[in-house]
């Protein structure tokens, strides 16, 4: 499965940070650097494993940690309906 950001989510990268507003919530949320990168990479062209692999190239992080954190964060996003 290749996670894809919901088109109903308002989001923008500003000054290096990603801000999102979930549909129907009316709450502004700021993502951390890593979470923002996972958000950017969730464009429907990569699997979670491929996103984690990209993170290991961009950040100083062990592959297994990147994989676990990517899965966890995508799980949160999916639960909230922010990725498909």
């Amino acid at each position: 499965m290749k996670p894809l950001r919901s088109r109903d989510v308002a989001s923008r990268r500003i000054g290096g940070k990603v801000f999102i507003v979930a549909p129907g919530e009316g709450r502004l949320t700021m993502l951390s650097e890593v979470a923002g990168r996972i958000w950017d990479l969730s464009d429907g062209t990569r699997t979670a494993a491929e996103i984690a692999a990209e993170l290991t190239r961009e950040f100083e992080v062990a592959p297994e940690t990147a994989a676990a954190d990517t899965e966890a964060f995508l799980g949160v996003l999916a639960q909230k309906g922010l990725v498909q």
Binding site: R27, T29, S32, V34, T65, D69, V76
Partner: peptide
């Protein structure tokens, strides 16, 4: 890096 990074700060839209 940790999933704690994904803990998000939220505010009402103003």
């Amino acid at each position: 890096m940790s999933a704690a990074h994904a803990d998000l700060e939220a505010l009402e839209i103003d």
